[in-house]
Design a protein around this nucleic acid. Sequence first.
DNA 1: TAGATTGTTAATCGATTAACAATC
DNA 2: TAGATTGTTAATCGATTAACAATC
Lengths: 219, 219
Amino acid sequence: MSQAKRNDSINSPIDQRKIPNAVVKRLSLYSRALHQLESERAEKVSSTKLGEMLGINSAQVRKDLAYFGQFGVPGFGYPVRQLRENLKRILGTDREIRVALVGAGNLGRALLSYGGFRREGFKIECGFDKALQETAESESGIPIYPIEELERRIEELQIDFAILSVPNEAAQGLTDRLVGLGVSGILNFVPIRLSVPDHVQVHNVDLALEMESLAYFLT
Amino acid sequence: MSQAKRNDSINSPIDQRKIPNAVVKRLSLYSRALHQLESERAEKVSSTKLGEMLGINSAQVRKDLAYFGQFGVPGFGYPVRQLRENLKRILGTDREIRVALVGAGNLGRALLSYGGFRREGFKIECGFDKALQETAESESGIPIYPIEELERRIEELQIDFAILSVPNEAAQGLTDRLVGLGVSGILNFVPIRLSVPDHVQVHNVDLALEMESLAYFLT
DNA sequence: TAGATTGTTAATCGATTAACAATC
DNA sequence: TAGATTGTTAATCGATTAACAATC
């Protein structure tokens, strides 16, 4: 499942602590805040400032970062640019990550054109859809292939991750195919639990669930 | 919240236990699993079975449900239909909830047509977009109004919730307007922290963050 | 009654926060 | 040196799980 064995260059050799998933998510938040600070020409930032920007306790900021090394300078804070570089490397987003989208329905096609992924270094190479007889194209010019070409294209394009937005019934079967092709991460928009081998990560985005649990607090 | 009180205790505000957000999210999961069981004509389900369907410990299932009352029968399990009805009522989704979407860009327009919300009893009444001079329409026939009509339409349609998918810079300002109009829940797709009064709930859906934290586990 | 399963308490596990010596 | 802020330990808080008497 979630393992912490990462680049030895970052952790000290002995340090094989398991990093909680919550920490990893915050890493990504820090990276984004740092990006903003960079654009504001800030050279340093304290854990207090960074925490305030994100609504996170400063002790937690320090602790999270300390999992991965000593990035800060006592009495000074953290060097903005350097810290962000480190975080990107730790997260593995210091290089382009190739993504395929499976299921180009309404939501799928929107995700193909969604700018937020690209901004963080993800490149959506192509989409797949069952309904297609021949190759189509998204609004933003990304090719959408018939699902029959899944195997061929995924290998050809060396896809790392998949975004899954297909009907419930099709989700597990397609997941199995994707996993078989070496896809190691799945951003899953289908509201069912996917079975995957331990080395594959699935993050679920359950829009209806978010909405419904919001309703609980309606006055 | 008002649903949190137990029947054996004196009705005082102090008595109301605070329900953890994690519990509320699971309630929604239970509701969906129950829906599936109903369609399979199951009349009862045990905490063990329900837990297995969702990857949740059975003790947790029982504890979550017990927050809200005694729904189960020892030696038997939980009556499917009845439990689901109770959960929908507790969640507040036993009636139609009216939603407006603010920001009909790529993602926004897809959410307008996304079936998952409707399935849980949410009705997206309309969308708003800044770029429009006059009323347009989504693929699925939902009207999209120029942002100038926000005040008028939200009040007219008695909107409960908003889905926010606008550029970062516009998010806080529009949030303030929505809150001023009595919107009490926001499903926020904008990757910034929104300030809202205590009585307003915000759930953040951060797609880029989900993707980036996925990358951490790439082998 | 025998078997099953709840509701609940107690034990465990994990995550957050406070505090502070070490450091620049 | 004086002031600021880190990294880290200890304390707290909260959430999950195990266990079991009560109940059908």
